[in-house]
Computed example of a mutant assay.
Amino acid sequence: MSKRLELKFLNEENKTVTIALDQPVEPADPQLINQAMDEIISQNIFTTSGGDLVEKKGARIVERNVYEIML
């Protein structure tokens, strides 16, 4: 099983941009995530083909289970 934290933003073209971080700290702290996302926007450290990140859209933890099938 693997988990990742997905931070979702909107760029200048109003398109969704996702930044994914593997193995997030749990339990997730919404206040810290909110602050980190604000900092990412204010520092303008990521650019996309649709322009700068301008707004927070959301955040989520995604859990994935992988089961190998023996052939």
Rank of each mutant, 00 (worst) to 15 (best):
E6D: 12
L7I: 02
D29C: 04
K57V: 06
R64H: 11
F46N: 12
E55Q: 14
T47S: 14
K8C: 09
N65L: 15
M70R: 05
V25F: 11
T16M: 11
E6K: 11
M1E: 00
L32D: 03
T47E: 13
K56Y: 01
E26H: 06
I40F: 09
V17D: 00
R64V: 15
Y67C: 00
I40S: 04
T16Y: 05
R64T: 09
E39Y: 03
D29W: 02
F9N: 10
T47K: 08
N14E: 10
T18K: 12
D29V: 02
E68C: 02
Q31F: 00
F9D: 07
Q31W: 02
E26K: 11
E63T: 15
N14K: 10
L71N: 04
P27G: 05
Y67A: 01
I33G: 02
Y67K: 00
T47N: 13
E39P: 04
L71Y: 05
R64F: 13
V62R: 15
N34S: 14
N11R: 03
I61M: 13
P24I: 03
G58S: 13
S2L: 12
V25I: 04
E12Y: 04
D52F: 10
E13F: 02
N14A: 08
L21K: 12
G50F: 08
F9W: 04
G51K: 09
P27I: 02
